[in-house]
């Protein structure tokens, strides 16, 4: 990891120079290390500890073992929300994999043909990625408005009776997932495109000469060769889906309205830790336990998925 730099070692001849160089290195590292220690390492270690405490306000008051964890997973006041939220996160992940990333793959394949305007198209699909989820969420919340929203106005033009998309239990989560896909599709598309552009021209030409159709090219030739890009996209989508917070918070509120139909782990964690409009109570103990469980779940599943996906990359 660290290759020896002989030219520096030569300068270390005298002890006093050596000492001064040591001080200089320490000075360079100090601010970065200090900030990382205070704002990353220390909080992270405490977060595991806090999960085992009962809290009064911001102060841990009593060590209570695994009680917080038990409540989150099995006590009906918490567990109902936990498992329902987890199921919603899983739906979000699966839907984004199919809708957002599937579409992204098709867009990348179309852009690979380098038709006129393909560079401009890359700039266009990446534009929403630049915008805050708050802007995108509010914009689509207005568009999904049952009476005055653009979506229902457009449907009315083609003779379809619209719905209160965000106010109906069966469609609210879907509407937010759609918004997420619109917001982010450019990101996986450009990751896939970069992966496809790394495939040698000869490989694709050879397949074409052998008479491979676009469908065969896309599914049999290119797909295995962009496996590293697919790995990145799957892992990032997984982490993003299980940390999902800003878009549902803006579009459905902290309680995941209507009736918890859009409640996800991020919202449940926020309500538990910092209180919601209905209960203004902070509960750092249960909040910490939930955060630790989410962290472990995401870390373990990502690590396993990474192993499986990397193995697949080598196979092909």
């Amino acid at each position: 990891m660290v290759q020896a730099l002989p030219e520096v070692t030569n300068c270390l001849a005298t002890p006093s120079r050596r000492w001064r160089l040591g001080a200089w290195i320490a000075l360079l590292l100090a601010p970065g290390l200090a900030i990382m220690t205070v704002f990353v390492a220390a909080p992270l270690l405490s977060s595991f500890r806090y999960a085992f405490y009962e809290f009064h306000g911001v102060l841990p008051s009593a060590f209570i073992g695994f009680a917080n964890f038990h409540d989150i997973l099995f006590d009906s006041t918490y567990a109902v929300s936990t498992w329902r939220a987890l199921a919603h996160n899983a739906i979000v992940f699966a839907s984004l994999m199919i809708v957002q990333n599937g579409l992204a793959y098709l867009i990348a394949f179309a852009l690979l043909k380098a038709l006129p305007g393909h560079r401009l198209h890359q700039v266009i699909i990446f534009l929403p990625v630049m915008l805050s989820a708050v802007i995108v969420g509010f914009l689509w919340k207005l568009f999904f408005h049952p009476l005055f929203g653009l979506v229902n106005a457009a449907l009315a033009l083609v003779g379809i009776q619209g719905l209160p998309w965000l106010g109906t239990e069966s469609t609210a989560l879907g509407a937010i997932i759609f918004t997420n896909a619109w917001h982010w599709v450019g990101f996986p598309a450009l990751i896939f495109l970069a992966g496809m552009q790394r495939i040698s021209r000869e490989t694709i030409e050879a397949a074409r000469i052998d008479g491979a159709s676009d469908t065969v090219l896309m599914t049999r030739i290119i797909w295995p060769l962009v496996a590293p890009s697919a790995t990145i996209v799957v892992i990032l989508t997984f982490i993003g889906s299980f940390n999902w917070f800003e878009l549902p918070y803006i579009m459905a509120g902290a309680t995941g309205s209507p009736g918890g139909a859009t409640d996800v782990l991020g919202l449940f964690f926020y309500r538990t830790a910092f209180g919601s409009a209905s209960s203004g109570l902070q509960d750092f103990g249960h909040g910490s336990a939930l955060a630790v469980l989410m962290f472990l779940f995401i870390a373990i599943v990502s690590a396993l998925a990474l192993r499986v996906l990397r193995a697949r990359e080598i196979e092909t």
Partner: peptide, 17 residues
């Protein structure tokens, strides 16, 4: 190691800190 840590999940200890 900081790259692996989703700092958002450490929001409670960060808040206390």
């Amino acid at each position: 190691a900081g790259l692996m840590v989703p700092l958002k999940l450490a929001i409670i200890p960060l808040f206390i800190q």
